[in-house]
Design a binder for these strands. Structure first.
Lengths: 219, 219
DNA sequence: CGTATAATTGAGGCGAGTCAAATGCCGTGG
DNA sequence: CCACGGCATTTGACTCGCCTCAATTATACG
């Protein structure tokens, strides 16, 4: 578990004593925006989506959590966003009180969480660029490359990329409609940059050109 | 200075000893994206814009800093974004080394910085919603209300709101073009929601309806 | 195998972007 | 003080691409 990588063995043992497990089925909500924050979590398997909602139902997905990611970095008294399972997922959970006590006793754990928060902030700002300034093809291309890179970080193949989330999720993440997402996939396929064996797998055929489309000049 | 509000008087004295001052004229760059991060800053007067740039020149402004805001929350080895002055500005500056030493000695300072980072992360995610899911009028309306609220937090009037940044800055912050920003101001003026005594002042005539346009049902 | 849901594809409209021109503002220098 | 020039802002005309609405096809699940 990633938060533990900053700890020594005996410290990990201590941490594990106040820990409990959660399993989620697809679309199960773990926490809801506005709810009092009583527990924090680390994802051990599966995938979660984090989202904000407007009164009229519009939704923005702010990110997808993958194993090792921590839930609750940004939150204070209440959860700032909703977290739901994209696929069957497992999590470790701690009470906020226990976690506060642990971070106080283990500075390395506290530093690790601060580091993760800063990384999340940089990612959020990269996402602002994607949402505000990239064209649909660029958005989708950079999304695929980002998922591929994260898969590699989890010792999974860079291609084919698994897309456990729906087109609606992708659209709500990239600020597009599902139709535009779908058409963009088709376009990338037609251009020979990707293959779509099925709607939840994307094989990257030409990473270089895909990176060019993403607006990120690689190498 | 806001980072100091967590400290006692003798601690503030200590902090002040390793401090230096910077003055910036409009459009002066303080730090550039990618540059090694040697110093951190707190803004004491004026306004800064934080931005990311693409190779082709497109730009996304990720936020505007106002007095009391800290520069360097998200950054690690290098600055993750460019910071430039929007108007004449003054800053206090510390070497990263000094600051690290100080946060180690004064836990309240470290906690305060962590808290500010988490707040910035929540704001960045709110901004993702604005960029991805709001219509132009909603973007501009929420931008005006946000500036107004921040002005109040600095003991300045809620209206008229001062807009020291250019239309280009606003467009690059909201993911629009300058023409659309300008037309949206004109539309809000025509609807009687705001007045534009000059391009850098906005008088809010009907906060309620402006909030409705922003998609945020207030009260 | 049948049904519900998700994804794709198609047709058409509208609104934000693009290109271009006019106006307004401000600092500079005559 | 006024004239000029550069820049920011506003406004106009038009295009194009994304969204909307609708229908079809594919997929997943019981």
């Amino acid at each position: 578990m990633a938060v533990c990588s900053a700890l020594q063995d005996d410290e990990v043992n201590e941490l594990e004593r106040s820990m409990s497990f959660v399993r989620l089925e697809p679309n199960d909500a773990l926490v809801e925006e506005g709810e009092p924050r009583r527990r924090v979590y680390t994802l051990t398997s599966g995938m979660l989506r984090l989202s904000l909602a407007l009164p009229d139902g519009r939704r923005q997905i702010t990110g997808f959590l993958m194993p090792g990611d921590y839930l609750g970095l940004a939150d204070d008294e209440t959860y700032a966003q909703t977290a739901e399972a994209v696929m069957p997922s497992g999590l470790c959970s701690f009470s906020v009180r226990d976690m506060d006590r642990l971070t106080e006793r283990f500075p390395r754990l506290r530093d690790r969480l601060h580091l993760m928060t800063r990384t999340a902030l940089r990612q959020a700002r990269e996402t602002q660029m994607i949402l505000g300034r990239l064209a649909p093809s660029e958005k989708v291309a950079s999304f695929l490359l980002s998922l591929s890179a994260r898969a590699v970080a989890h010792s999974r193949p860079a291609s084919p990329v698994q897309l456990p989330m729906t087109r609606t999720d992708i659209a709500d993440y990239l600020g597009l409609t599902i139709e535009t997402v779908s058409r963009t996939f088709t376009k990338l396929k037609t251009q020979g940059l990707i293959r779509l064996p099925d709607p939840h797998s994307v094989e990257i055929l030409d990473k270089e050109r895909l990176a060019t489309v993403a607006g990120i000049t690689i190498n």
